[in-house]
Design a binder for these strands. Sequence first.
DNA 1: TTCATTCTTGATCAAATGGTCAAGACCAGT
DNA 2: ACTGGTCTTGACCATTTGATCAAGAATGAA
Lengths: 204, 204
Amino acid sequence: MTKSQAMPAQKTRIQNQNEQIILDAALEVFSAFGYRGATVDQIAIKAGFSKPNLLYYFRRKEEIYVAVLENTLEKWLAPLRSLNPDNDPIEELSAYISTKLELSWRNPAASKLFANEILHGAPHVGKYLKGPLKDLVDQKAAVINFWVANGKIKHIDPYHLIFAIWAVTQHYADFSVQVEALIGPKPELATIKQAVIQILLGSL
Amino acid sequence: MTKSQAMPAQKTRIQNQNEQIILDAALEVFSAFGYRGATVDQIAIKAGFSKPNLLYYFRRKEEIYVAVLENTLEKWLAPLRSLNPDNDPIEELSAYISTKLELSWRNPAASKLFANEILHGAPHVGKYLKGPLKDLVDQKAAVINFWVANGKIKHIDPYHLIFAIWAVTQHYADFSVQVEALIGPKPELATIKQAVIQILLGSL
DNA sequence: TTCATTCTTGATCAAATGGTCAAGACCAGT
DNA sequence: ACTGGTCTTGACCATTTGATCAAGAATGAA
């Protein structure tokens, strides 16, 4: 009896190593061209594999894509998770914005990949949005409402505040081409942080 | 001597009519699937034409795409153009946000098409960003700086304020799937307007 | 009606692309 | 060195898809 069909439960050293190389390459390619626009050949070349070899590790193009996406999601959500109701609201929200901005700034490919996925109707992560993401956001919205109820910040709709933070922070990664066309290349992250925090939290 | 090769300068009634039908269909398809993801067949079917007939009006897929994009750009920019330095800053900016939000809200396909184009490096409108768009934005940034200099609003970086307005307003169209997953379907536009204006302009 | 022009389409093509397969190379435990 | 499993690849296949073309149908000005 052979176990060849489904990949073995135990992963080889080479497997772990090569899968990571492939995922890194795939992130770049999917992010730059979208799911349909990316080709298995492109990913294979960027990763330094032959196409059949790449398809030995991931049997279908979609499997690579989903793996890359899942690989990104948790990292993407972590900052929101750390919003702490016991600290000063402005401090906490500023730190959140700052962290999120840096995350997008340093992982523009991941940001663009996610944006592209949502933009096209979230065909692969729809369940995730309505499940874990919604749970987390509901929880953190409650934290913001708690701050409002205790008079620590002015009244605000927590969901729209979170949306605004997401929108603005990701804008600098997703629309970097436009940003750079308008204010020149390589703007300072510190400058952006300051302006964004002022705009988004100035009303609190 | 025949003029068949390049399309005649004078457009037929049928040509104008059919080109518009095609552009409408193409907007939907390109917006939903991206440039590569969209197929000429899909556009043809949605427009009610045979594929060769569609390619009679637009010789290449890319030609359709560029036409759709150009068709959208001017409409997209108009609201910013009407920012008037002589009126009350908060009034003007509120009106701008409101108009932009409604525009995105009512033309989600156009918003997504544009987002997708920028996301992938603006291969077809790069020139436009650095040219006409930059000129307009520079001009309007000067207006905001004028308001600041006259003490009408608190000090703010005009470019980042404009980016924030764009990011947030388009977020509700581009990321509608995520928004609806988190706060339920069909949120009220009026509610969104109020929250967004408070968040973005509260610091001024 | 006439007829040149415009419009429409079935058939077809070439290239791109996701995916398969058999055969061989490599690796690790014995 | 032997051997079973893992890893790698050249060759190949089926489908999709952008694009062409010749031939026929509709249109409109005279």
